[in-house]
Design a protein around this nucleic acid. Structure first.
Lengths: 209, 209
DNA sequence: AAAGTCGGCAAACAGTTGTTTACTGAATGA
DNA sequence: TCATTCAGTAAACAACTGTTTGCCGACTTT
């Protein structure tokens, strides 16, 4: 359908990408709700009317960006969960994975953190829902670990939520950090925090409920 | 200077408040970067030109809203820190304080979570800086607790950061929750998470560093 | 080679925007 | 009482905005 036969299709895809990239670029310093069609087409080097050959409106551009961003985030989470080895090592590598993702997908991550509680309901809910799905995946992975023996599903879910929230906070902090030194400091703090949570995990069953 | 002699001053203050309230109302469904002077004055029942008798521009309105919101948040944090009693009790009351604050200052809290990573640099930095100051206060309070004996300042700071981030996440989740039942579920989860962190705290010195 | 498809453009539409201008009229101070 | 101050207004400004229209010309299909 799309893999052959198409100088036409290829050019169209290219223009579409140009629009998406232009939007993503503008959204680094702006909010989705404040974006304009003319603004995007200007940045993409296209006439305003051309926009409507690709999207019915800006909302749809936004949704597409959400999907892209979440797809890459999803990949990152799977990488983080795939870490093996001792707890210490896993923590360090997980934080490293997060830091690398933020570095390499800065515009996407910035978009997500900015619109996570932004003014566009559809986008907000898409992000929130997907984060909840991610928490579910994390919970599944946690359930398989020996440390979780005897934990109720609710307890595992609350731990997964804590991890996901922590990851989000850490990613946002890394984004805002102005210098490399600051980013390293944030990463180190995040590691220590995860270690503290890990200590709590190991003593949870003996102490609580 | 201002406490007497002023039907004039009082009327001005009233108009100023009307503008701030109008802005806050509009910002429940919108982003600061997408707000317009005409929009605000229309909502406040004032002519567009009148706006400039009170603020040089919208950015200043935004900063003023940040200060208001942070002042009320500051009050909340002090309440939370003032909790006495056993760990369990303190946790429950702290979460209750957060939930009450979110309920009673919904527009302010929504504004903060929305603009925490929003498109207006000055506002973003004001919020971020103030949250860091709050973390400092939390750290001071933590240092006084017996559980923190033997902790380095860095360790205490990372714990305070974890608490503040967790509070922010919880507040945001409470805001987004559609039903009272959902809010109760979130509060209960938050309590359990705090309890887990508490377990980690108590076993930290024996296990880490 | 001819006919058709369709991405992109310029131009025009009616609205809206931020900001300035000169003004009005009520509160103020002499 | 009279002059002054000043919050709020209406009107005008140019500069945008989203969206539609008709058209062109390069690709595709027949």
């Amino acid at each position: 359908m799309s893999h052959t036969a198409g100088v036409r299709q290829a050019q169209k895809q290219q223009s579409r990408r140009a629009l998406l990239d232009a939007g993503l670029r503008l959204l680094e310093h702006q909010n989705l709700s404040g974006l304009g069609v003319r603004e995007v087409t200007r940045e993409a080097g296209m006439s305003p009317a051309g926009f409507y050959r690709h999207f019915p409106g800006l909302a749809e551009l936004g949704v597409e960006l959400v999907e892209e961003s979440l797809a890459s985030l999803h990949g990152m989470i799977r990488s983080a969960l795939a870490q093996r080895g001792a707890a210490e090592e896993r923590i360090d590598r997980t934080v490293a994975v997060i830091a690398a993702h933020v570095r390499e997908h800065q515009p996407h991550v910035r978009f997500l953190t900015r619109e996570r509680h932004g003014g566009v309901r559809a986008v907000r809910e898409a992000i929130g829902g997907e984060l909840r799905r991610f928490a579910g995946e994390v919970a599944e992975a946690l359930a398989l670990q020996p440390v979780s023996a005897g934990w109720s599903p609710e307890e595992i879910a609350m731990l997964a939520g804590l991890y996901v929230d922590h990851m989000v906070s850490t990613a946002a902090a890394l984004l805002d950090a102005p210098t490399e030194a600051e980013r390293r400091r944030i990463a180190r703090t995040a590691q220590t925090q995860l270690r503290l949570i890990g200590v709590g995990r190991r003593h949870w069953r003996a102490e609580a409920g």
